[in-house]
């Protein structure tokens, strides 16, 4: 039984809601003001200045490229992992625990950890050298190895943030009643048909939330790139950070903040528009 009451729930929610509204609304307004005015007058000067900077377009390009490579791979990987783990086997608890460890590891720490693996004197290079597979270390870092830096970021980010997708999808999987699958089995569906016709469609809401969460966080990617590549690979959050802390260009930094916020809203809206699961809609 739920209680019907007129004002109590609003009264309880109001403080949290007001707090959030302030911390989203105020900076948003502030950012718009800083970005689009000069000496109190409306001006597009800052926008022009930002757009004229090749770093801006590089940052946009790399942010989207990183998200484009990382997010789909993560969802695919997490789906395979969740499907594999979602059965009874020896060591299941340990496996799930191990798979969720990266949930707690910050982007900065993940960058540092992967530096230990990929640096010229790192684990991977020494391992491959000693096995004899390579005779020169593979260089992952430095401006001239930018594509390798990109790869290092992808590896580290896959390592760090696949966990969250895994947990969301696993939770979704566990919510699917076993009878749905048994019914399909009884009516003649093999494993792949069951996966295609029953499991994946029923997982759609989970996959959708994982995709939204990961895509939006990918728009803010910062620490891992900053540690592994610095500005060799410019990204939106990193450029905003650089403009603000190094150059004290509040106006340009605000544009970066607005671009990330705009991208997030746009992508979130697109996902929700195109990925609604029809059968959940009709329940209302």
């Amino acid at each position: 039984m739920k209680v019907k009451s007129s004002y109590i729930p609003y009264f309880l929610i109001l403080p949290a809601f007001a707090y959030l509204l302030f911390f989203v609304g105020y900076p948003l307004v502030q950012a718009l003001y800083i970005a689009f005015t000069q000496n109190g007058q409306f001006s597009l000067a800052t926008v022009r200045k930002t757009f004229a900077d090749p770093y801006f377009w590089d940052a946009l390009k790399y942010t989207i490229a990183l998200a484009g490579v990382i997010v789909p791979t993560q969802v695919g990987l997490a789906l395979i992992l969740a499907l594999t783990v979602n059965r009874a086997f020896k060591g299941k608890d340990f496996t799930i625990y191990a798979l969720t460890i990266p949930l707690t590891i910050s982007d900065v720490a993940a960058g540092l950890i992967w530096y230990a693996i990929l640096s010229p004197s790192g684990f991977l290079n020494k391992l491959l050298l000693n096995i004899g597979l390579i005779h020169q270390p593979i260089y992952f870092f430095g401006y001239q190895y930018r594509h390798m830096e990109f790869l290092a970021i992808v590896l580290a980010e896959l390592w760090r943030a696949t966990s969250i997708v895994f947990v969301i999808i696993l939770a979704g999987l566990q919510m699917i009643s076993n009878e749905y699958l048994e019914a399909a089995e009884v009516f003649g569906a093999d494993y792949w048909t069951r996966l295609r016709k029953i499991v994946i469609p029923l997982l759609k809401p989970s996959i959708q939330s994982a995709l939204i969460i990961r895509t939006l966080f990918a728009m803010q990617i910062f620490g891992i790139v900053w540690i592994l590549a610095g500005r060799d690979i410019p990204i939106l959050a990193g450029e905003g950070f650089y403009r603000l802390t190094e150059l004290k260009e509040y106006d340009v930094a605000s544009i970066y903040a607005l671009v990330i916020a705009g991208l997030s809203i746009l992508l979130g809206a697109l996902y929700i528009k195109f990925m609604k699961a029809e059968y959940l809609e009709v329940r209302r």
Partner: peptide
């Protein structure tokens, strides 16, 4: 609506909002 907007706010890039917050 309130629930949904809280979910949406969770997705909102609040870290980036720190940039304009500096001025305040």
């Amino acid at each position: 609506t309130i629930k949904l907007s809280i979910v949406a706010l969770r997705m909102f890039p609040i870290p980036v909002m720190a940039i304009p917050l500096v001025v305040l």
